[in-house]
Computed example of a mutant assay.
Amino acid sequence: MSTKVKITLLFLIGVLFSGKATAQVHCGSVAIVPNSSVNQVVVFDDFTKYNGGVTINSVARIRITVEDQNVPDPLCSWNLRMFIENNSGAGTPVDEWEELASYGNGNASNPQISELQIRVRNACATSPSDNTFRSFNTTADILDIIAQMLPVTPAGSCTQNVNGPGSYLTNFDEFNFDIDIRLNPGFQYNPGIYNLNIRFRLEENL
Results as ranks from 00 to 15, higher is better:
Leu116Arg: 12
Gln69Val: 02
Phe44Cys: 06
Glu99Lys: 07
Thr139Ser: 05
Ile179Asn: 03
Ala108Lys: 08
Ile145Ala: 00
Asp180Cys: 09
Leu206Gly: 11
Glu115Gly: 02
Ser109Cys: 05
Thr65Arg: 14
Gly91Leu: 11
Asn122His: 06
Asn39Pro: 00
Asp173Ala: 15
Ala60Pro: 01
Ile142Leu: 11
Pro111Gly: 11
Gly91His: 14
Lys20Asn: 10
Gly186Met: 04
Phe136Ile: 04
Val54Ser: 07
Phe133Ser: 00
Asn57Glu: 14
Cys124Thr: 03
Gly52Tyr: 10
Ser2Glu: 04
Tyr194Leu: 01
Asn107Tyr: 12
Lys4Trp: 12
Gln188Ser: 13
Glu98Gly: 04
Tyr50Arg: 13
Glu98Asn: 12
Tyr194Gln: 00
Pro128Ala: 10
Val162Phe: 00
Arg199Gln: 10
Leu202Pro: 01
Val66Asn: 03
Thr55Lys: 12
Ile64Ala: 03
Lys6Met: 12
Asp141Thr: 02
Phe200Met: 09
Glu174Gln: 05
Arg81Pro: 00
Val41Ile: 12
Gly89Met: 03
Asp46Tyr: 12
Val120His: 01
Phe200Glu: 04
Gly106Lys: 13
Asn79Asp: 08
Ser36Trp: 06
Leu10Arg: 08
Phe44Arg: 05
Leu150Gln: 13
Ser36Cys: 01
Ala123Lys: 15
Leu202Asp: 01
Gly53Gln: 07
Pro154Leu: 01
Ser37His: 09
Ala123Ile: 08
Val41Arg: 08
Thr48Arg: 13
Asn86Phe: 15
Leu16Tyr: 14
Gln40His: 03
Asp141Pro: 04
Ser37Arg: 10
Glu99Met: 05
Val42Leu: 11
Ile198His: 06
Leu16Thr: 07
Asp180Gly: 06
Gly89Asn: 05
Thr153Arg: 08
Phe136Trp: 07
Asp178Arg: 15
Glu96Met: 15
Lys20Tyr: 03
Phe172Leu: 02
Lys4Ala: 11
Asp45Lys: 07
Asn131Ile: 01
Ile146His: 12
Val71Glu: 08
Gly186Thr: 04
Asp178Ile: 14
Glu98Tyr: 15
Phe187Arg: 06
Ala123Thr: 10
Val25Asp: 03
Ala90Cys: 07
Ile56Gly: 14
Ala140Lys: 11
Gly164Pro: 01
Ser109Glu: 14
Ile64Trp: 04
Ser36Met: 05
Gln24His: 08
Pro34Leu: 03
Asp130Gln: 05
Ile145Ser: 00
Gly192Asn: 14
Leu202Gly: 02
Ile56Ala: 15
Glu85Phe: 00
Gly106Tyr: 10
Pro185Gln: 14
Thr8Leu: 14
Ala155His: 09
Asn35Glu: 13
Ser135Pro: 11
Gln24Thr: 03
Asp178Leu: 15
Ile179Ser: 04
Ser18Gln: 14
Val41Cys: 10
Asn184Lys: 14
Ala101Gly: 09
Glu115Leu: 13
Ser109Met: 09
Lys20Gln: 11
Gln188Met: 06
Gly166Ala: 11
Glu115Thr: 08
Ala108Ile: 02
Asp46Ser: 06
Ile84Met: 04
Ser109His: 12
Asp141Leu: 06
Arg119Val: 02
Ile193Gly: 04
Asn176Ser: 15
Ala147Leu: 08
Val43Thr: 15
Val54Leu: 14
Phe200Ile: 09
Ser127His: 04
Gly186His: 09
Ile13Glu: 01
